[in-house]
Design a protein around this nucleic acid. Sequence first.
DNA 1: TTCGTCATGTAATGGGTTACATGATTAC
DNA 2: GTAATCATGTAACCCATTACATGACGAA
Lengths: 225, 225
Amino acid sequence: MSRRSGILEFAVLGLLRESPMHGYELRKRLNTSLGVFRAFSYGTLYPCLKALVASGWLIEETDGAPEGVPAAALTGRRAKIVYRLTAAGKEHFEELLAHSGPDAWEDEHFGVRFAFFGQTSRDVRMRVLEGRRSRLEERLERMRTSLARSRERMDDYTLELQRHGMESVEREVRWLNELIESERAGRDQRPTDSAAQDKNQSGDTGGLPRHRGGSRPDPSDDTTT
Amino acid sequence: MSRRSGILEFAVLGLLRESPMHGYELRKRLNTSLGVFRAFSYGTLYPCLKALVASGWLIEETDGAPEGVPAAALTGRRAKIVYRLTAAGKEHFEELLAHSGPDAWEDEHFGVRFAFFGQTSRDVRMRVLEGRRSRLEERLERMRTSLARSRERMDDYTLELQRHGMESVEREVRWLNELIESERAGRDQRPTDSAAQDKNQSGDTGGLPRHRGGSRPDPSDDTTT
DNA sequence: TTCGTCATGTAATGGGTTACATGATTAC
DNA sequence: GTAATCATGTAACCCATTACATGACGAA
């Protein structure tokens, strides 16, 4: 049936874990929390929500009536659906959170995974951060050798582009190093449960992993309700 | 008929302008010249090449036999097609080069456009660079306000991500500033014609515009033949 | 009453990858 | 002889966007 999307599924589950929401608001949150990395349109979000409901991870509630109402049919008025995470959904999300395999540090996933680091265990965080770092280091290596081999064939602009590219990757590696450092140094943000409330530790420096290429409409979307 | 792709078409035309090539080699060049930004698989490239031939921008030549040979049918041996830019193709490419509209500075296009800056006039270069800069400045503005509005709702990691994201964009803006500066300062690389040969001017600093999000297989491809 | 924004959806399309099928040529 | 890499292609998907259709609600 309908659309799934992996990363979107993950993000939706993660956001709904904090509190139930309309699809509409969900999208706004998505486009600011994950902001620079990804944006999703309704054409992606709504079908995905339906699929998540079908899987039992979410339930729909019509805005006024709590719990059991099967959504649709409410005095003829239009939908207005609030999505709420089910117990199964929560469990499923926690499983997803625990995965720290290779795709967790690929470009498209890493940013989103990072955005939900606050809900993961430090173990997972470390594995993901280190995975990404070595990923980028390989990339850097490949860039260096391929640059060495074809430097003469490139004109100034191509070269400049290449250089800036490498520097950006290098910069992300430094960021990761700092993050890893400060993870090692013992911060131990709540391994799994509940939402934001402790904003103590800090001392990291940063920069972004990478912001997505695709022609995001650069969401003029806002955040707060 | 077959697939077009805009940006791929542009890049292919641009590379073939320097010299005729096999599809195979074209792909390698694509994945190193444009390296960090985009990568294309054969499933994208070959159909696109066929489409370009159909449009008359390219002609196919079978590897040994020069000029007129209609490709296919050469003692039963397998294809081995060399693609060569036609006069019409060259003209078309120059038209594309001259466009400096908004999409030239969108994420997906900008990198590729920049890679071929050596073949554009300074006017176009300036417009594209300035366009991108103001594009990023808008984005920055939006990030700042949306961050201001929802800072409290975000946990440390989300915040950190946001910060790194902004810094990356800021960094690209600085890079663009330097490039614009040095364009203004009068370098005047050959407005249009021919390929790389003068690698005199320099003195720019740099960094990359942005590397594409999508799960590129991180092309293990090499460059030189 | 009209405008903005909240709110939900879908069909058409775009742009791309993966996996596969096939085979030639080169280097060891 | 066998592995790597050169070389060309295609069909089946995947993920997402665009543009559209529909409508409620609040504020000016």
